[in-house]
Design a protein around this nucleic acid. Sequence first.
DNA 1: TCACGGCAGATTATCGATAATCAATAGTCT
DNA 2: AGACTATTGATTATCGATAATCTGCCGTGA
Lengths: 213, 213
Amino acid sequence: MTLERTVMREQIKELIIQRILDGTYKPGDRVVELQLVNELGVSQAPVREALRDLKAMRFVDSEPYRGARVRAVTAEELSETYPVRARLEQLAGELATPCVDDKLLRQLDAELQAMRTAARDRDQHGLLIHDARFHELIVEAAGNSVLLDAWSGLRIEVFTLVSLIKSNLDLAAVANAHLPILDALRQGDPDLVGKEMRAHIESFADLVTGDQR
Amino acid sequence: MTLERTVMREQIKELIIQRILDGTYKPGDRVVELQLVNELGVSQAPVREALRDLKAMRFVDSEPYRGARVRAVTAEELSETYPVRARLEQLAGELATPCVDDKLLRQLDAELQAMRTAARDRDQHGLLIHDARFHELIVEAAGNSVLLDAWSGLRIEVFTLVSLIKSNLDLAAVANAHLPILDALRQGDPDLVGKEMRAHIESFADLVTGDQR
DNA sequence: TCACGGCAGATTATCGATAATCAATAGTCT
DNA sequence: AGACTATTGATTATCGATAATCTGCCGTGA
């Protein structure tokens, strides 16, 4: 995974993702192939392939002969993501519980502490990173690669960021909302972990989509 | 969707998928770019792009400079798919129930009848198509595009086919297993529909993976 | 014999150029 | 004026060729 840093397509892909996440490319913006070709001094082929990957990752939309546009994270898609994510993470919690070990608990605890630190520093981006990683650790621990793929496809980072921005939540509260999950994992009750994870996601769904109705 | 039949990449993609599904390309087989280039009389670019799409669709695996191979549908991946699919379809059933109308019920009934016909004719492939379409109709009816994407990523057709082959199930029984779902939909109880769909998937999981332990 | 280095052959990744297609605008006819 | 067609500029899709990389095989030397 780290051995392929020489493949141009990957570098281009990461550059574009970075620009989408940091706002250089805004939703709806066109991503023009030749423009990147000129800017980066590469050929069109790797740029095209990068864009193709990004389409599969749902970062951009594209149609034949019409090019790629940064996908808007619509309120609709945001609210549609929550129920799917809630069910997948519920399953992840149930599957992961029998597999928890001290190492995982330590890692989760470290992410939680990092979230608290980020919250104290008003560091939205930092909170986002560690929040996403906390959940990812659990999904990985479930040991089901199909589940991991499906979950990864939801682009949690993007939506978590939007959630954070839309809801004027207290960052510390967001961080601490992960505590019940960690506690449940320590208890080792799969169904409880699943319920906590599902409730965790659904509570955010309510907060973010609730104020729009 | 049907207007882009002139884009070569799409045609190549469908050709390869067809060959994977009908067994021309077997799991583990290499899919060599230049070989297709010569055979189809096209350039390398569209072949590469087709393969890139297929990788995103998990039909093939590929690594830089090492090419693409048809992804083996391992028993492990098969059994990992079931729980994920079960939860997603449970959610789909719950969401779809309030949206049920006569048209949908008619379509579902038509697919069910088609499954029965296929079963009578010992037509595994036909059963597979209509089985997949039955489920797809419900997931579409849920009206959640994120859910639809996540579900589509599971490549139901592939796994249903493998399931059918591995389990020496009576095809008619497979067809009729969809009846409780249709009944529940007619009753209009979301939770019941969800439960039926989940149970439907999980029963197949037991049948297919059960005999391997 | 066996480990090692390095040369083919095969294959993928990238390039630069051309063809195909699209979107917008100008021009023509009624 | 309004509707319709032709042209043009911009962009994507495809091509054919070259560079980069991998894999297996062969000879060499201990």
